[in-house]
Design a binder for these strands. Structure first.
Length: 276
DNA sequence: CGTACGACCTGCCCGC
DNA sequence: TGCGGGCAGGTCGTAC
């Protein structure tokens, strides 16, 4: 599921139900997701109050009253699900926070590419997970100047560069494909060869698409739902993603959307509209 | 240094 | 109906 918009919305829903609540109990039903789970440390968060919930890149950060922070990454197939008692453990439920003895906040992740970790507040931005994350694309710091700087001298294609979390954090395969289409830039284009107009357009379109996706409650593909069960809507607004062979959405273009592979990942684009 | 590729997992969909 | 192959929203380590 989860790129920046989906993680952002999940975080917002978590805020509504979890912020300023005491966590009665933490259930751990797994030995390992992408990294081993620190059972002892995580168990020490029981009976503490959640005082802050935020997002950094694709990580959800839950701060407890002892200043320890729970980090959650949803990987490829992870979801947060809210449930009420009686709670039945489903397949791939790895982890749950229990509040008011009857509400369960569950991490379900079939492919186990996600992770749960814990970190002391003071060490947070030096911790292994967050230390190398690049800029947040929805902040003012992500500007024409910044994008120009990180593109200069890069021989990588623009698509792989945008997926690099050390440069920009939060973009994933869907939103990179969509942003490049919206900016009329070929995913194969070498990063350092983008001209000023393209850099400017790309910067604006990344922000625009992420904002629309957040407003649309994210993309619900392969059954992704918000914790509350709500479906996202941005998948209906895809212009290239999952649209192989379909008509390009540009009225002036008679071409069809092409599917190819870049860096081992499916890549959708219009070879008429998106320029090398 | 940058890039390319396989590995990590499971479920689902398609074709035979 | 059942099986096998290919595919999937992410990230990391290794090899060149």
């Amino acid at each position: 599921m989860p790129e920046l918009p989906e993680v952002e919305i999940t975080k917002n829903e978590l805020k509504k139900i979890l912020l300023n609540k005491h966590v009665d109990e933490i259930l751990i039903n797994t030995n390992s997701l992408r990294i081993p789970i620190k059972k002892r440390e995580i168990k020490q968060l029981e009976r503490l109050k959640v005082i802050h919930i935020s997002r950094r890149g694709k990580y959800i950060l839950i701060t407890f009253s002892n200043n320890y922070i729970l980090l959650i990454h949803l990987g490829m197939s992870g979801r947060i699900v809210f449930k009420k008692k009686p709670f039945i453990i489903n397949k791939h439920d790895h982890f749950a926070l229990v509040i008011n003895k009857k509400f369960f906040i569950i991490l379900n992740d079939p492919r186990k590419f996600g992770l749960v970790d814990v970190c002391y507040k003071e060490d947070l931005f030096n911790c292994y997970h967050l230390k190398y994350l690049g800029i947040e694309p929805l902040t003012n710091g992500f500007s024409f100047q910044y994008l120009k700087k990180i593109l200069s001298n890069r021989k990588s294609n623009i698509k792989n560069l945008l997926l690099n979390q050390r440069l920009i954090s939060g973009l994933g395969n869907i939103y990179v494909c969509e942003s490049l289409y919206e900016s009329n830039i070929s995913p194969f284009k070498i990063a350092k060869n983008l001209n000023k107009k393209q850099i400017s357009s790309l910067c604006l379109n990344i922000k625009k698409i992420l904002k629309i996706a957040i407003k649309s409650n994210g993309s619900s593909i392969s059954d992704f739902k918000l914790p509350s069960g709500l479906l996202g809507n941005f998948q209906n607004k895809f212009k290239v993603y999952n649209r192989e062979g379909k008509k390009c959405k540009n009225i002036k273009c008679k071409g069809k959307i092409t599917k190819t592979t870049i860096g081992g990942r499916p890549t959708y684009y219009c070879c008429n509209c998106q320029k090398m």
